[in-house]
Amino acid sequence: MTSYEHFAEAAHAYADLVAQIRPDQWDSPGLGVWDLRALVGHGARALITVDTYLDRPAAEVVLDGPVAYLTSVGASGNSAGGDPGAVAERGRQAGASLGADPAAAVRVLVERVLPRVERAGDPVIETIGGGMRLSDYLPTRTFELVVHGLDVARASGQPPSALGEEVLDEVTVLAASAAVRHGGGAVLLAALTGRAPLPEDFSVV
């Protein structure tokens, strides 16, 4: 499967998950400072940013792959993309922009963005972290859709989406590679092999 196919599978799974949220759940706790609406909005930004960046060609490649993206704009705060306050506010705004029927709004995003990506080829796009190939950016969006899909499922009392092994392999390998790049490879390996638990604040983003 290609990075586009992984992205499409994760996007459809996310939309299907959001469609099962009950009307009385949108103001309930989501994740951290977010209610469920803001959490869903934040996850939907994985689609919104692709839609936006397709209209922003970059002159050169600055980030050479998805691992470079995650480690440059993650929780380390190396850019505006990693500032926790800015991330929280973008999530709230994205949730509000979903309107009266958030599930329908997410489905519309999926139906608009996927054909655009399929037609686009592999341009160099300007992301919040710098120029990179679309094919390298998409795995970071698949990662966001899958991880926040798990968050949405947990917050809304649903089972996780039934994703294919290839998609789960892509996002898990990406997370592990980001941990190594952050200097946490040995800690993660010890946890994965049952040697030691992960530290409470351990994260690759």
Results as ranks from 00 to 15, higher is better:
49 T>C: 10
49 T>K: 08
51 D>I: 01
52 T>H: 04
54 L>E: 10
54 L>F: 12
54 L>I: 12
56 R>H: 14
57 P>H: 13
58 A>R: 00
58 A>K: 01
59 A>H: 07
59 A>C: 08
63 L>T: 03
64 D>R: 15
64 D>M: 05
65 G>S: 13
67 V>H: 04
67 V>K: 04
70 L>A: 11
71 T>R: 05
72 S>Y: 03
73 V>E: 05
74 G>P: 10
74 G>T: 13
74 G>Y: 07
74 G>Q: 11
76 S>R: 15
77 G>T: 13
79 S>P: 13
80 A>Q: 14
80 A>G: 15
80 A>V: 11
81 G>Q: 12
81 G>K: 14
83 D>V: 14
84 P>G: 13
84 P>N: 14
84 P>M: 10
85 G>Q: 01
87 V>P: 04
88 A>N: 12
88 A>L: 01
90 R>H: 11
91 G>S: 09
92 R>D: 07
93 Q>K: 04
93 Q>I: 04
94 A>Y: 01
95 G>T: 01
95 G>I: 01
96 A>C: 03
96 A>T: 09
97 S>T: 02
97 S>V: 00
100 A>H: 11
101 D>C: 04
101 D>K: 09
102 P>W: 08
104 A>L: 08
104 A>E: 07
104 A>C: 06
105 A>D: 05
107 R>H: 11
109 L>A: 02
110 V>H: 04
110 V>M: 04
111 E>H: 06
111 E>K: 03
113 V>K: 02
114 L>F: 03
115 P>S: 09
118 E>H: 03
121 G>Q: 12
122 D>T: 08
122 D>Q: 12
123 P>W: 07
123 P>Q: 10
124 V>C: 02
125 I>W: 00
126 E>H: 03
127 T>D: 06
127 T>N: 09
128 I>A: 13
131 G>P: 12
